[in-house]
Amino acid sequence: MKFTILMGSPRSQGNTAALLAPFLEECRFLGIQTQCIHLYDKKVGPCLGCMACQDVPDSLGCVQKDDFAQIFQEMEDCDVIVLATPVYAFFCTAPMKALLDRAIYAGNKNYGRTKGAALLNGKRVASIVTCGYRPDRGADLWEEGLRRWCKHGKAEYLGMFCRRDLGKSVPFMDEEKESGVRDFAQAIYLSIRMEEV
């Protein structure tokens, strides 16, 4: 089993990285292979809206020559895509938004001369999120957007684990967050195992 984690935080030692660390440890304990791609280290330009990809029915067909195709290949080759991001303005960070825009557009051939495939059809997607408000007010728009992104791309949404940052006077990580995100890893693992039985 393989998880590809798309890390959307600009801070390698920030809250999202702190929440992700025990998730990755739990994955290793469960025997899950993980790959973490730091999107701020990659070059992924925004979608140009040129529609050239829509006339390539069985592959991406994007005209931009950057890191998008390589990242998308990793998304295709794994069992679960995990989107890890802080929420700054009620949605994911800019590199992740650029990636998701291109993945949903080039990955779904709905607008060309002939209708083609959904390249992430059946792919499982989960999210690990940090934000400054209560999750139901800080990450609700992100989660709804992700649900729609999955539905449009025929992917399976597995859920979100989100925790709030209470400010510099309160340490972000605590026992509840660590055990909760480990439980989240286990729940994803078990849901896949149940499907395989």
Rank of each mutant, 00 (worst) to 15 (best):
Q186W: 11
L24T: 15
A117F: 06
T85H: 07
A103P: 02
R124E: 08
F23L: 08
V129K: 03
V181E: 01
M1Y: 04
I81L: 14
V63P: 11
P135L: 12
V197L: 11
M160A: 12
R134E: 14
G167D: 05
L48Y: 09
Y133W: 14
S127K: 02
I32W: 14
D66I: 02
I32Q: 13
E76I: 07
V129C: 03
G112S: 13
V80G: 00
C150K: 06
A106V: 08
L60S: 05
S59F: 05
L24H: 08
I37M: 05
F91G: 15
V170Y: 02
A21M: 14
S169G: 01
A155S: 15
L19C: 04
D183P: 00
G159R: 04
K42Y: 00
L6F: 09
Y111A: 13
Q73K: 15
G31Y: 15
I37P: 05
E176P: 04
D77F: 00
I37D: 04
C78I: 05
L24K: 13
G145E: 09
D55E: 09
R182S: 06
R102S: 12
R148F: 08
R102Q: 10
G180T: 00
I188G: 01
V82Q: 01
Q33I: 05
D79Y: 06
A89Q: 13
K151N: 12
L119H: 09
W142M: 12
V63R: 10
P86D: 13
I128W: 04
S127N: 07
V56W: 06
K115Y: 14
A117T: 11
Y111T: 10
A21Q: 15
A106C: 15
T93R: 01
R163M: 11
A52E: 07
G116A: 04
A17G: 00
K43Q: 12
G132K: 10
K97A: 08
E144T: 13
H152R: 07
D66L: 02
A103R: 03
F161K: 03
W142Y: 15
Y189T: 01
F91K: 10
C92H: 05
F3G: 02
Q70N: 12
A103V: 03
F72W: 12
L24N: 11
P95W: 07
T16E: 03
G45F: 14
W149G: 09
S179W: 00
P57D: 11
A187I: 03
A139V: 12
R11T: 11
A69G: 10
E176C: 01
N108T: 13
Y157S: 06
L19R: 02
I81M: 14
R134Y: 13
A84G: 09
R113F: 12
S179N: 09
A139Y: 06
G153W: 04
D165W: 06
V87W: 09
P46F: 14
T85M: 10
G138M: 08
R163N: 14
S127E: 09
G61P: 02
S59H: 07
L120G: 09
E196M: 08
T34K: 09
G8P: 02
T93L: 01
A185T: 02
C27P: 00
V44G: 03
R124A: 13
S9G: 05
Y189W: 15
